[in-house]
Design a protein around this nucleic acid. Structure first.
Lengths: 250, 250
DNA sequence: CCTTCGCTTTAACCTAGGTTCGATTTGACG
DNA sequence: CGTCAAATCGAACCTAGGTTAAAGCGAAGG
């Protein structure tokens, strides 16, 4: 009884299966995508803004961020990406990268040639639609972040971000219902929310004082009362376009 | 010699042709998409957040905005859409709308059944790829807006927005090189940039005082020196993914 | 057990942009 | 050409969050 080796691209299949139904041929074609994998250390770049991107990169482990640097050197984080997510469909299909993608933990990345992805998408419409869907959900999250950063105060903004992480980590199978390990420093949280790290610190402590979250080690977040935190964060999971049974916690 | 009637969906063909090459069959299939058109008055809604969207809507004339309302009633505008743009691919493919789309001028809209769009995309990969590309560019603009609202000051933010409009209007064939009619009030500009209308007013006057823009009537914007305005707005057109010859003005 | 280094925390002070509330201008319509 | 509503403009005052800088603190490595 020889067990077949676990296919490297399984996490991608898991992720895309969330958005659509595939038949056996679809699955085989997906898992057989040519690729090479590479370990990238913490803070290593996957793509840099203005570079020509020709691979679609899949996160097999670890966390990455998308970010841009504005004129005075300030950084804005645009998204946090986790296992199973394709971080460079966007840049590679568009040609020249309009933002950078960087690891915030050490992790393993699969590099898939862009043209293979494109061929697969049109040869297998089920997969193509799921991939398109996936990029549309990314766009939906970007929209929510515009509103978060543009129109919510620091308190609400941070609570919202913590809710988003809780739910996305749960769906990705990476976190508990009400407790998770946040892979980010307070400075990185600040760059997600358009705040300063000093104010993130103040605000996090306020959230803790109100009993909305607890923090054991500096990175672990425990959500005391999901409903209350969601209310404080003006959080409505609709924009994540999850299946109904996963759209809420607890 | 009877001249064929101008196809209603021509503006969509023009727009998508920007992203890829189509053959005659592609073009015919696109122009033959079933649809009905409707005139929508100023402030009329095309879709409302949380509604089930089943049409992809094409703007034939006029301007629309995408927006969200946050908990305290504040509005964040997420994008401004113009002639030839498909404003509801996003919402309709995803099912339940995660944001509202509203006209800010009177205009004509073509409603195309979502499933027809999907069928077309996979029956004609050239078109499908162009449509996907188009949604990826939308996402790129969302990313830039996150950075704009999150990390730039009011002055830079507004200058950036004015640059974006100038370039997009020009590419859409709706504005002059250096002068255009802005279809938005100062309050709407405020909701694009996460500012208040009072501060938009102050900042606009500052931009004018510095000679970066002139305003004849209250809505017309004339750009004195494109390079200077672009510098003031930390504007790099890369994120619009335009063809090289159009990526800069004058 | 000590050092180093990256984070987190705290405190004092400051400013960009918000708030409020009028006054003026513009523009559509009769 | 007068009226009404919407938009712009202006001034006085205020606050959420930024800035700077200096302690703490904990995990990794010697």
């Amino acid at each position: 009884m020889s067990s077949a080796p676990e296919p490297t691209l399984r996490p991608l299949l898991r992720r895309l299966s969330y958005w659509g139904k595939f038949d056996a041929a679809d699955e085989q074609a997906l898992l057989n995508l040519p690729h090479r994998t590479k370990n990238i250390e913490r803070h290593g770049y996957i793509v840099r803004e203005r570079e020509r991107a020709i691979h679609s990169c899949l996160i097999l482990s670890g966390f990455a961020i998308r970010h841009k640097i504005v004129v005075d050197g300030a950084r804005q984080i645009l998204a946090v990406q986790m296992k199973g997510e394709m971080v460079d469909l966007q840049n590679s299909f568009l040609g020249v990268a309009d933002h950078s993608v960087q690891m915030i933990t050490e992790g393993e990345i699969a590099f898939i040639p862009r043209d293979e992805v494109r061929k697969l998408a049109f040869a297998h419409p089920n997969i193509g639609m799921a991939m398109w869907f996936d990029t549309l959900v990314d766009a939906s999250i970007f929209r929510e972040w515009i509103a978060n950063v543009g129109r919510r105060n620091a308190h609400t903004r941070l609570a919202h971000l913590l809710c988003e992480f809780a739910l996305r980590l749960k769906v990705a199978g990476l976190g508990e219902e009400t407790e998770y390990e946040l892979p980010m420093s307070q400075e990185q949280l600040a760059d997600c929310t358009g705040l300063t790290s000093v104010h993130v610190n103040r605000t996090l402590k306020a959230l803790e004082a109100e009993g909305l979250i607890q923090r054991r080690s500096s990175r672990s977040v425990t959500i005391g009362d999901w409903k209350k935190l969601a209310r404080a964060g003006d959080f409505d999971s609709n924009y994540l376009h999850l299946h109904e049974d996963e759209a809420a916690l607890a």
